[in-house]
């Protein structure tokens, strides 16, 4: 089972070759109470130690497939289930340093049954998480 926080401890890691990291990634559980068509997710902002990495520049990975924001909008028949997680891939030259970071996430959900002015609705979370390998 998954941790209660949206952001999971496991899966927080740098990506790209050691010494030439291209970014990092964060594992996040489905934070909605029902499964979401990927087209209802308008991207995920990540915040690390006060620096915001906006959804527009991040990739969304589910089941081994990566999606840009435009590709999420096309994925009307693919679902993120409750009890499952996705990964946000954040480009950042050099990656993150080894150690504990304050990590935040803001998932932009579109809930069609909410009035238009409340969309997207933002599901936020913040916690400490640890990078083991710089």
């Amino acid at each position: 089972m998954l941790e209660r926080s949206h952001i999971q401890s496991t899966g927080f890691r740098n990506v790209g070759p050691e010494g030439a990291r291209t970014g990092f990634e964060v594992r996040i559980r489905q934070a909605n109470y029902r499964s979401s068509r990927l087209s209802l997710i308008e991207g995920v902002d990540i915040i690390v130690d006060g620096v915001t990495y906006p959804a527009e520049g991040n990739l969304f990975r589910l089941g081994g497939k990566e999606y840009t924001r435009d590709e999420l909008n096309e994925a009307t028949q693919t679902r993120l289930y409750v009890g499952d997680y996705f990964t946000v891939v954040v480009p950042k030259q050099g990656g993150l340093t080894r150690g504990v970071h304050l990590v935040g996430s803001a998932i932009r959900y579109r809930h069609p049954y909410f009035p238009p002015e409340f969309q997207p609705a933002i599901a936020r979370n913040e916690r400490h998480a640890t990078i083991i390998q710089a």
């Binding site: 087209s39 209802l40 579109r110 069609p112």
Partner: peptide
């Protein structure tokens, strides 16, 4: 659910 606002 009927997700009428299915895409942006």
């Amino acid at each position: 659910w009927v997700d009428t606002r299915i895409q942006i």
